[in-house]
């Protein structure tokens, strides 16, 4: 995926200005930066979730496999089918585990091999062994980490090409976090992952490439997110080019 001159407005407010970078296929790209720098805004513009926010305008283009997803002949629903998303807090529906995973298949009208697909998705999300005996119990009875993996399984069931993760571990304990990171590494063999995280260690550990955003404040006190630097994770953490990146990763601000 390629972001080219992406700016996002909320009403009159410019939330993110002129962000351009590429997301390589089958790699994990982390977006890092201080709170309020527009990390999530950038992420949500990659599968048009921003369409759902009133007064949100996107300028510039986001190309996915060479096609601008904001082009008039592209429907948001088609984009989201291929570019799945996992949210900050686990968002299981108040239904059974099985019904949660099968939800996307139902929407897509896929009837064949549903059970196999559900099992496959749960296995991919490393959840199968824990829930295989109780697929009909409520998803709300799972632990936070399990719920989040269920949401990943739910997203994987429709076999997306890209998975967007918006601070997927911020509500989880370290053990659950480690499992999700392992999972991401495994999944990246088959799909592209973009993850927003406020946890620098996580970005360093779990991603291949890292984009660093920061906040600029103009004369009127308006805060706007801008891209500072994007590079392979090893390089960015070892030899940051921009001074602001260095300051941020060494903990001197943000």
């Amino acid at each position: 995926m390629t972001l080219n001159g992406l700016s996002v407005f909320y009403g009159e407010n410019l939330a993110v200005r002129d962000v351009s970078f590429g997301v390589a296929a089958n790699r994990i790209t982390a977006i890092i930066g201080p709170s309020g720098c527009g990390k999530s805004t950038v992420l949500r513009s990659l599968n048009r979730m921003n369409d759902l926010i009133d007064g949100c305008r996107v300028i510039g283009d986001v190309a996915y496999r060479g096609i601008d997803i904001y082009a008039p002949d592209v429907e948001a629903v088609e984009v989201r089918r291929r570019i799945g998303m996992v949210f900050q807090r686990p968002t299981p529906f108040p239904k059974s585990i099985y019904q949660n995973v099968v939800y996307g298949l139902k929407l897509a009208g896929i009837h064949d091999a549903r059970d196999d697909r559900v099992e496959h998705a749960l296995r991919q999300a490393a959840l199968w062994d824990e829930v295989s005996g109780r697929l009909d119990s409520s998803a709300l009875g799972l632990s936070g980490g399990q719920q989040q993996r269920l949401c990943i399984a739910r997203a994987l069931a429709v076999e997306p090409d890209v998975l967007l993760m918006d601070e997927p571990c911020s509500a989880l304990d370290p053990i659950a976090t480690a499992r999700i990171e392992d999972l991401m590494a495994e999944l990246s063999e088959r799909l592209t992952i973009v993850i927003v995280t406020h946890n620098l260690a996580q970005a360093a550990r779990a991603s291949h490439d890292t984009a660093f955003l920061t906040t600029e404040v103009d004369d009127h006190g308006n805060r706007t997110g801008v891209l500072v630097e994007v590079a392979p994770t090893d390089r960015l953490f070892a030899h940051p080019i921009d001074e602001r990146t260095e300051q941020y990763i060494t903990g001197r601000f943000g």
């Binding site: 759902l52 949210f87 529906f93 429709v158």
Partner: peptide, 25 residues
């Protein structure tokens, strides 16, 4: 709010979000 977003993220149309995520809630 989050059920709604999760449904959209799975590729649901607006009516499907209304019917499956919002009406039951």
């Amino acid at each position: 709010g989050h059920h709604r977003e999760a449904s959209y993220a799975l590729g649901a149309t607006r009516w499907e979000v209304l019917r499956t995520a919002i009406l039951p809630a």
